[in-house]
Design a protein around this nucleic acid. Sequence first.
DNA 1: TTTATTAATCGTAATATTGCAATGTATAAA
DNA 2: TTTATACATTGCAATATTACGATTAATAAA
Lengths: 109, 109
Amino acid sequence: MGLTKTEKFTALQNEIAQFAKVFGHPARVAILEHLFKINSCVCGDLVNEIGLAQPTISQHLKELTHLDLIQGEITGNSLCYCINAQKWSKMKTVMQQFLNQDLTAINCC
Amino acid sequence: MGLTKTEKFTALQNEIAQFAKVFGHPARVAILEHLFKINSCVCGDLVNEIGLAQPTISQHLKELTHLDLIQGEITGNSLCYCINAQKWSKMKTVMQQFLNQDLTAINCC
DNA sequence: TTTATTAATCGTAATATTGCAATGTATAAA
DNA sequence: TTTATACATTGCAATATTACGATTAATAAA
């Protein structure tokens, strides 16, 4: 089938999975890390930085934009992407709640 | 191609992506949450809990086991899975470092 | 033994993802 | 204008993922 049965899960579970999924490719991790490093916003040197073809980077950027984790703005004839700090914070809250589940009660077989 | 070019990225970037990827499906999120909730370890009622077919759950469990985030132990004729607390902690460190990148310097276009 | 029960594995269909060449679009520079 | 530059979009091939029926293996119960 290849089709995730999202209706079987809670909105939060689907949200966590959606965020995680977008981080589930090293190119997108690398793009985000680069955008954090270049603390002002930065655009298309990502292609040189990452070393994948331009359409490939463009596609990864699209997925990040789609979740609103980054935003792009046209400056001249180039396009400037940057982290959406507010959305990143919200995402972080969701993900950390998942990661911080109580380990102390774990009592393995 | 459908094949991730891992060689273009650092070991850490690939590691982050690998962990994120396994969280990138709501069934695996649900499985982990259930294992946390049932603080002692629990086995095949995951199939009833989640509502996907047994082979599907088994496959998701395999992926989690593969990353060592959970472990299974045979008890009688059933199989008891539980969170691997040590590995979870290590994973959490890696993921939180990624999530906690400095937002204060972000100065969008 | 024989029969249930539990869960892994196999095989396969449907769909998604990754990557890129080719092309299109829009602005900048000449 | 014409040409260059920057990036999105399209189309496609290769591969991965998701899901499950059927089967298998192994233990438990009868």
